[in-house]
Design a protein around this nucleic acid. Structure first.
Lengths: 203, 203
DNA sequence: ACCTGAACACCGTTCAAGT
DNA sequence: ACCTGAACACCGTTCAAGT
């Protein structure tokens, strides 16, 4: 077996994504990673001290890619801050359901001691901060009622996360559901209507 | 080793809950179940054909217990249908975060081929139907705007599930959050405000 | 920074044979 | 409806020794 002589760390990460796409998180094994790359089993441990830290790195990539996407979307949105909030929320859901493998890893329960992974936490946190800024903008323009923006962000995040996760986990399919873009739009629209000031409503 | 001579199936389920409480879902192993009960390793397979079916049975117990709880709560609520919806939604979240072990098993991703498990699906579905009936009642009294009640139920469920799951997974603690009862109340209140008809608002 | 080869303590699951 | 005892094909991880 020849030396790998490349960016093995990156090769591990990319191969891991492929395996998870093929066989789910449960199908991800160190041995399979090594085999696919063509490297010895313990080469892995030069780059990650254990499997959990690899999963943390994958999750972090997922949060980073979501963040990049949300920023790109925001750059193309109109200046109206209520519309920006609405569309960004919808974009979150669509990105999640379009990248179900990433999203599942991001919220895998084996990482729920999240505080331990400083870097992962900060990357994840960017997304919530983005949401919070959108909400603060709306409040400045008196389009959303006053109140702790952090709590409002947590409430919005809950809706986005719940809808994304239930959809990814196929919880809606047996009972049937509207196309995800429509469902996302009405869900977000309903919540924003609820927090909007009385003199301004969306839709 | 003596015969077990009891309801081994029930003993397996109860022991499984204990192990998961102690060590998480990942810590649940057939071998540990057998050891704790004091039964041979393959006795298990007389009652469950594999580990996944045990997890499905556990998840079903979780959905059943949530359903019983929601019905008990509903029995003590005032007749006002908007208040009943609000309080039932809050009760869902509080039950979830008060039984995090159960809730995590209920939505464990290894069971997300949910349709396969007929019985599990139907038990889970009861909860959504309960939510849907509460919404239909509100619509009949013209407290909530018209529209597909199934979709409205999916939207509500998304908020409840997202808030419960993020809280259970400790996603809020690093940034701090209001007491869960308050957070649940304002989250549900905001969404209901959004779907309420204009001439009637809660809070 | 990789390699080989072997090993350890674990898994879920199955089998043959008993009571 | 359980038991024993052994086995199979897997895991994550580690170690000693090489290049």
């Amino acid at each position: 077996m020849p030396y790998h002589h490349g960016d093995l760390r990156q090769a591990i990460i990319e191969t891991a994504w492929q395996i998870i796409s093929d066989s789910g998180i449960e199908g991800l094994t160190m041995r399979e990673i090594a085999t696919r790359i063509g490297v010895s089993r313990n080469a892995f441990y030069r780059h990650f001290t254990n499997k959990e830290l690899l999963l943390a790195a994958l999750a972090e990539e997922g949060f980073q890619s979501l963040f990049m996407h949300l920023k790109e979307v925001a750059a193309q949105l109109p200046p109206d801050s209520l519309a920006r909030l609405q569309e960004s929320c919808v974009a979150y859901i669509l990105h999640a359901v379009n990248h179900p493998v990433h999203y599942r890893v991001m919220f895998d329960s084996s990482l729920s001691n999240r505080k331990i992974y400083e870097s992962l936490y900060e990357t994840a946190r960017q997304n919530l901060d983005l949401l919070m800024n959108l909400i603060t903008d709306c409040q400045k323009n008196q389009l959303i009622r006053p109140g702790d923006p952090k709590e409002l962000a947590q409430i919005h995040w809950s809706l986005l996360h719940g809808l994304s996760m239930l959809y990814i986990d196929n919880q809606f399919i047996a009972m049937g559901c509207a196309p995800i873009a429509e469902l996302a739009n009405s869900a977000v629209g309903a919540l924003i209507e609820g927090v909007a000031t009385d003199d301004k409503t969306i839709l």
